[in-house]
Design a binder for these strands. Structure first.
Lengths: 277, 277
DNA sequence: CCGTCCAAGTTGACTAGCCAACTTCGCTGA
DNA sequence: TCAGCGAAGTTGGCTAGTCAACTTGGACGG
């Protein structure tokens, strides 16, 4: 991020480099937008403890001057931190640091492979089956397909450093499934390959609950049939809102926990009674 | 929301009522801010299907004119809808409707009582024990207490229309616990009472995983000891960032599922390997 | 010593406008 | 017929400023 690409329409740039109020102890990514750079910088300052455990952030105006941006841009950055649960924010008083750390989250949740790497483990994927067949009603509903459309269904055993962790059953619409079907069975990250083919994953709905292992689960994971599994069902869409996968992951107990932050301001989590299947 | 309280500093109000582009089919709440009213209105239009299943929203400019507000305000409203997973949003093209429905979520997750009512069920709470004792290290850490501080610990069996659903173990800091300890044992909603005492719940971190039932769980829920339970651990803070409760809820399988939306833009969910206890 | 009140500081909300980046679609030319 | 170009439409990003609502802490008075 060190230098800014375009130096956007600020009348006079008056020599002060944009976004440099803090040395920016590199290693950050933060795409083009200024407010993302400010956010990334503040995030790092917070997680390294520069403002203390429950310390106060500088005022918006002060940060704006420090980074050489407008207050609106600083507010965009702070909104990001807030939705991540890093800081509070209420009228009349400075923002207060909340948690101590927080991970990148989206890609980590989306891709088993990314998640594994972020923990320093080696991800693995053993393809158990891949079939192409007509979609049933539930699948057509979830993937928004026409009656008579076909889907590709994969079943994979996912491992961390060799030990079985999760069974992944994914239903792909034809456009996506055709690509997956061509893949060698030892490709670990389908997500990665699909991204290279221009299939983007940008939005996902997750539902988390407990189920009993069926015969296939038991065979693949080596657990008792009927034993408890943590289930995550996920429907993912691309930027246009078109569904690109409908997946059901079943984790062995003790291998994973899901973590969410929500607040009165930005919420996204809810609790349901059973529903959909 | 039908009428606007203050009609804020718009130079000339030129007779066009603010926020009235749509009849506003009443029943909405939406607090003071204009952008919240616009958001509530759009949310309803979307969920009632006014824009179709995967339809396109009007352009920001058009909405701004329709509601008689600036484009910035419309963008604030749309950001809310986006973080709820209702619409997509990318440069160059109109927003697209994503899901079909979505609940209010935050209060629903925070309070078992609210959740129950929102499903049309009768919530119940049977107090099993309430003790006051010195906080252990983990509790001091979570609630940010001084060494030597005391905590109040409650164990409650929660029911839906009479049937056991969940065991709730909550640790309160003294300030909050003193209020809870005074409550009659048949008070169903602690959250509600605390709110009346000025204890506000605004931010929460949740962690969801699977555990085996211990002896107490089995006794209260009537399940087998060692049987699977869905566990939700939650730390809640007030607007100043001060922790107000640390709770651990254990649900019987099949009674509940947690649901999350996330996207590249606004994320909050992540996946962990075990951790904290 | 303690409570009240006020002023300064701070965030929330909103407006108006600009430019850039991107998508879509129709038109044109090969 | 089809590919490519370009214009129009749309959202992302940013600035600058205004006013309102709220919090905090200190001065002051009882």
């Amino acid at each position: 991020m060190t230098d800014v690409a375009t130096e956007p329409q600020r009348p006079e740039a008056e020599g002060r480099p944009a976004v440099e109020g803090r040395p920016a102890a590199n290693g950050e990514r933060a795409s083009g937008a200024l407010y993302r750079k400010v956010a990334a910088d503040l995030r790092e300052a917070i997680t390294t403890g520069a403002y203390g455990e429950a310390g106060r952030l500088p005022a918006e105006g002060a940060l704006a001057e420090q980074y050489g941006v407008s207050r609106g841009t600083v507010r965009q950055a702070l909104a990001l931190l807030r939705s991540d649960g890093l800081v509070t924010s209420r009228r009349g008083t400075r923002r207060v640091v909340l948690a101590g750390a927080r991970v990148q989250s989206f890609s980590e949740l989306l891709s088993f492979t990314h998640w594994a790497y972020s923990m320093g483990e080696e991800p693995g994927g053993i393809l158990d089956s891949l079939v192409r067949r007509p979609a049933d009603a539930a699948e057509r509903e979830q993937l928004r397909l026409e009656p008579g459309a076909e889907v590709y269904v994969t079943v994979r055993l996912r491992t961390l450093s060799g030990t079985p962790v999760m069974v992944e059953r994914t239903v792909y619409p034809p456009r996506v499934g055709e690509i997956v079907a061509e893949l060698p069975p030892d490709v670990v990250s389908h997500t990665e390959v699909l991204r290279e083919h221009g299939i983007l994953f940008t939005d996902a709905d997750h539902t988390i609950d407990v189920v009993a292992a069926n015969a296939e689960d038991a065979r693949l994971l080596g657990c008792r049939r009927g034993g408890p599994l943590l289930r995550e069902r996920r429907r993912t869409t691309d930027p246009t809102g078109t569904p690109v996968e409908w997946s059901q992951d079943r984790y062995l107990p003790g291998t994973v926990a899901f973590s969410v932050h929500n607040s009165l301001a930005t919420s996204a989590l809810s609790r349901h009674a059973r529903e959909m299947d």
